[in-house]
Nucleic acid binder design. Structure first.
Lengths: 101, 101
DNA sequence: TATTATACTTTGAAATTCAAAGTCAATATA
DNA sequence: TATATTGACTTTGAATTTCAAAGTATAATA
């Protein structure tokens, strides 16, 4: 049990960050607006949680110009994807040992 | 996506509480010592997180005497089990949509 | 040239975390 | 028989985290 719990990554415990990572596993890149509407959260919440993931080097944040407007593009790093998989596998084990009991 | 994320229960985001609930889904009752060693956490951490679950009525905390020593016994309530299942099903959907991609 | 809109970021009050310190009864030791 | 010490927790509070309101910067519009 403790071995599985130890695989739980504190950074991914937060549901916004869980959502960001999940979205970035399926989509190679997503912009701010899209991610915000996908997760249905406030600007501040997305921005600050994305910063947490960036600080851990789990995602990359790039700013581009679409015409004259800026656009912020998010993508997961390889280490972010790997760390997230470890986290999900731990959750999967917990689920497997818990449901249908 | 937001519909799934909305099913994530803030109380169960914390890994100690996730571990407590998971253990109490599989075992009808567990005592303090057993749970502490199962999760490998400090006394204070177990005690305060169990209190959070009790306040939500997700678990019951009973004190018994084993000889002349007190023993604290934890068990999940029906509503606790139900809430935990909802949480795990949401995680399961995220995992299913995320892994092997 | 205001004013409003777009696209975020920063700030900080409120909530949460978790180990150290505290409580309290039982038992061992001097 | 005082008085440590142990066992089984609980409480406290400093440190960290959360997240929406306020702020910033540029562009479009009236």
């Amino acid at each position: 049990m403790k071995e599985i719990i130890a695989q739980i990554n504190k950074i991914f415990e937060n549901k916004v960050r869980l959502g960001i990572m999940s979205a970035l596993m399926v989509n190679e890149r997503i912009d701010f607006k899209e991610l915000k509407s996908l997760l249905d959260i406030t600007d501040g919440n997305l921005s600050s949680n994305a910063s947490v993931l960036e600080k851990e080097k789990y995602i990359k944040i790039k700013k581009k110009f679409i015409g004259k407007k800026t656009s912020t593009i998010y993508s997961a790093t390889t280490s972010g994807k790997d760390a997230f998989k470890v986290h999900l596998l731990a959750l999967e084990m917990i689920i497997r040992n818990t449901l249908n009991k």
